[in-house]
Design a protein around this nucleic acid. Structure first.
Lengths: 243, 243
DNA sequence: CGCTGTGTTGACAGGTCTCAATATAAGTGG
DNA sequence: CCACTTATATTGAGACCTGTCAACACAGCG
């Protein structure tokens, strides 16, 4: 890959040629992970972060009771593992849930961005704030809504993100999350996820075909999810000007 | 104030004199907010962010059902409202819950940091990642633990943060949150917060005196909260070097 | 063909919410 | 300073949501 791949930074800035070059140099050679493989485990030393080029990766923190909370379902273009940059030991276990392609980013190179490419650094900052807003919305969903709404919220959230990656995204798509994983993301048990899903199916809102899912009534699902609509601020004025 | 005040950036870097000067210039003249006053409301245009110099401020997102989720309890030294920097309309309502002193930061000046003070920008980046980790831990608490544990987690979290501000912090302190607000933070109703509190009191773990609270058995509370211990990475190697 | 992971279902227990009423504290205007 | 209003805390009873435990079905895979 000579051209650096999709990256969620692009939601916030457009790159100059020089910046594009810097991004290309940021990432190491892509490598592949099999489904189920762990990229980094809770407690590991933090030596690097990653860019997800292809596939799905989940990020989970362990609970002391032996359970786990999935804090993020990563799609291509996501930076992986960056919350742990501020910690001595990694907070999150990163697990591929499909075959995934990943590239490393050394922390050193990442730090250099702040000197060499201020606008890229600012975009990184924005990208983290964006994740923070998404977490705020998810706490609201988990803390304040019932199972059916939480499941809808997850489905709609993922559907919307897939549409960003692929504007002509069909309402039927691969959802490689097991019900156990959805439960771990939403704070529900497998059993209850299952019942909730059948309820949604019975209500004609969705259907499943193996790992595929189809959303029959996106507007109604969206209403049920009651997620706030977030309009991201692209190219804000306060960003440093292009060199 | 010629000297800029405490700031959580200092958890991650030490400032050069020049950087300290830049920080001093970053903030406008401090002003006071009465208890209950709103600094910014959901949906407002985002023109600035704020530094909390004194007092307590809560940050809440509204739910479509008319409820609200408190996403952060801010203490002195916190930056307020920065998640909304990436949005066209503010995501959060900022409300003073004690008399509070606040200073404005214009977005323009904030953006200039990325060019003029890369290390400060990097520290801001880290500070946001830190908030993200805290939100990850809170989702885990809300999604995966019972009421008693959630309340313990809130108390321990606040206690720990007060101790950072004041290392000799006593185990008795002012907690200016109503039970309704705690409920909104933890995803519980007022009624249940109340019952849970009486349970903790009956168990000899805490006691309340008006708005004061006393933690009798911090280690046991901490165990009950089952929060992960986060060791923050101070002065990481990958930070840009001091000029 | 047997394993193992995943999905499904039922019965029951337990946690939390809802509704409603009351008590107490805090704030306000006279 | 008192009377009144409002905010906050407290308590009980019952309904509802979700968890727990356990069994079974089904699929993919070696």
């Amino acid at each position: 890959l000579t051209q650096f791949p999709i990256h969620r930074l692009l939601e916030f800035i457009d790159l100059t040629d020089a910046e594009r070059q810097i991004m290309d140099d940021l990432y190491g050679a892509p490598f592949e992970l099999e489904r189920g493989r762990v990229l980094r485990r809770v407690g590991d030393e933090v030596q690097e972060v990653y860019l997800l080029l292809d596939g799905w990766v989940i990020s989970a923190v362990g609970t002391s009771a032996g359970g786990r909370q999935i804090v993020k379902v990563h799609l291509p273009g996501d930076m992986l593992g960056s919350p742990s940059m501020v910690l001595k030991k990694a907070a999150e276990t990163l697990t591929a849930i499909t075959t995934a392609t990943v590239a490393r980013v050394s922390l050193k190179k990442f730090g250099d961005l702040f000197v060499e490419a201020p606008r890229l650094a600012a975009a990184m900052f924005m990208s983290v704030q964006q994740e923070r807003v998404l977490l705020m919305d998810r706490i609201t969903s988990v803390g304040r809504t019932r199972a059916a709404q939480r499941v809808s919220a997850l489905l709609i959230h993922i559907y919307d993100r897939l549409r960003v990656l692929q504007p002509d995204q069909a309402s039927r798509f691969l959802l490689p999350l097991t019900q156990e994983q959805m439960g771990d993301a939403l704070g529900l048990t497998t059993v209850h996820i299952n019942r909730t899903f059948r309820e949604l199916i019975a209500g004609g809102l969705v259907q499943r075909y193996g790992q595929d899912i189809e959303l029959f009534d996106v507007p109604r699902l969206r209403r049920m999810a009651s997620l706030p609509e977030r309009e991201w601020q692209r190219y804000p004025e306060w960003l440093p000007k292009r060199a």
